[in-house]
């Protein structure tokens, strides 16, 4: 974990209410895909936890949806604007169990952390299959980017305006070695009920500090209480106590 000053390189809208911001700064603490950063915003007391979409030396990409005041202010960032950012938060995905054909399942703004994951899995020689679920055509982003990485991609929309009509569970292939997922809770629970292999879930909770001090985001797991920010946000399927 490290607190650093990041400078906005670019910021643009990529779907309805969804923005992609590229920042420059010290990314040395970001170790795994699926980790997150906590961004301080002028005039708001708490920082905003946002997942890492992409990261290379000195450059960080985040994608977020405008849902309130904080993300509203972030959407207005112009090149040169500076943010204090806590980096290297959370555990991130464990790539060692992926196998040759991992399945990546993302819903809405749960898609971004899967991008760096896909990149790293491909570097390791896997061939990921990515299912991306959105409500409608105007919400879709990053399908081409995943294809460019070398993933097989299926897009679903609830209203059928693009790709397969339905939910991510309607587009899941039958043959995969392991799965990784991130998205809204109802989607995660549907994936939990439908998948037959083991896999990893990235969860979201309302957080206080983001680094394990306040116990604001603790969930009960098979291994006792765990902090989503520090012990997670990624949990193994077997740790979750969901009743489907």
């Amino acid at each position: 974990m490290k607190d650093g000053l990041f400078t906005t390189l670019s910021n643009r809208q990529i779907a309805q209410d969804v923005f992609m911001t590229e920042l420059s700064g010290d990314t040395s603490e970001i170790r795994n895909p699926g980790q997150f950063v906590n961004i301080a915003i002028d005039g708001l007391y708490l920082r905003r936890p946002i997942s890492v979409c992409d990261c290379s030396e000195g450059k960080l990409t985040v994608i977020f949806k405008v849902v309130g005041k904080g993300t509203g202010k972030m959407a207005e960032a112009a090149p040169g604007d500076k943010f204090k950012v806590l980096t290297g938060l959370g555990n991130g995905y464990d790539l060692s169990k992926a196998g040759t054909r991992p399945l990546l399942i993302g819903g809405g703004v749960g898609v971004p952390p899967l991008y760096l994951l896909a990149k790293k899995l491909i570097e390791k020689g896997s061939k990921p299959f990515t299912v991306m679920g959105f409500n409608s055509l105007q919400d879709v982003f990053f399908a081409e980017e995943f294809k460019k990485l070398g993933c097989d991609v299926a897009v679903t929309t609830v209203d059928g305006s693009l790709g397969i009509k339905g939910f991510v569970t309607d587009a899941m292939p039958s043959d995969y070695t392991y799965f990784y997922t991130c998205g809204p809770l109802p989607m995660l629970k549907a994936v939990y009920g439908r998948t037959e292999t083991s896999g990893q879930f990235s969860l979201e909770e309302r957080m206080g500090c983001g680094f394990g001090a306040c116990m604001g985001c603790s969930i009960m797991t098979a291994n006792g209480p765990k902090r989503v920010c520090k012990d997670g946000p990624v949990f193994e399927k077997e740790e979750l106590l969901w009743k489907i």
Binding site: L44, Y45, L46, E205, R206, M207, G208, C214, M215, G216, C217, S218, I219
Partner: peptide, 13 residues
């Protein structure tokens, strides 16, 4: 959960 709410110049826990 939720156990945290943001306020002006503070939080509720």
């Amino acid at each position: 959960l939720p156990r945290i709410a943001e306020c002006e110049a503070g939080i509720i826990n």
